[in-house]
Design a protein around this nucleic acid. Structure first.
Lengths: 110, 110
DNA sequence: AATATTAATCGTATTTTTACGATTAATTAC
DNA sequence: GTAATTAATCGTAAAAATACGATTAATATT
């Protein structure tokens, strides 16, 4: 009890939910926005921009990495993060697909 | 400690996060999809379609209502749910806005 | 009026998320 | 080689989400 019954729902709905979950915290949205603006960004710079501790930012980065929306390139002691283009498009299409299906239904005049 | 530091982030990022959170569970995506397909749906019918108890579905409906993505019209003892068109568009635009800003940056050739 | 149906809410257990400080492992600078 | 920097991970506390059964309040049926 308490845990999510993911298996009971369609793969499609789970995919949308997973992508949405990655966007479901303002810190993670802010990180994505930062990476979009700057194309790429070293972890420390992200920490500097956010009102959160290094460890907390690292945790948010991990979640975005697990959702595959970003990837990190190791550059010596630093890690340079950037958007994962392929997965970002997949997320866009998955979420947009839901909104689009709404538009389609809406425009079926009755 | 433990709670989300919403105030520390922009209104824009919080709005995206809030809409995304509403979509961050497959049951809620399934509910939205159902309402899109059928235009409107009585609560009991939604319960019948989902592999969750009545109380759990009610809780998910509450969250979607709080995010304003759906609204419920009372019809006697029943409640008929449907998409809130205005807010659905707002959600679409907010989330799409993030993805679009990525597209724009990406196409700025360098 | 008594009973049945419907959907929200309450209470509760469990899990997950959020957040931080401390530690660790690795690279870099001295 | 030692010290400093960097970022991930560990441990932990607090909060929020998920799920369900039981109860409640309201309408509908008999």
């Amino acid at each position: 009890m308490g845990s999510t019954k993911s298996d009971e729902f369609s793969v499609k709905d789970n995919r949308i939910a997973t992508y949405a979950k990655a966007l479901a915290h303002p810190a993670r949205v802010a990180i994505l926005r930062l990476l979009i603006q700057r194309q790429a960004c070293v972890c420390g710079d992200i920490v500097d921009e956010l009102p959160l501790s290094q460890s907390t930012v690292s945790q948010h980065l991990k979640e975005l990495k697990e959702a595959r929306l970003i990837k990190g390139d190791i550059d010596g002691a630093r890690v340079c993060y950037c958007i994962d283009d392929h997965e970002m498009n997949a997320a866009k299409n998955a979420i947009q697909g839901l909104f689009d299906s709404y538009e389609v239904q809406k425009n079926k005049c009755c």
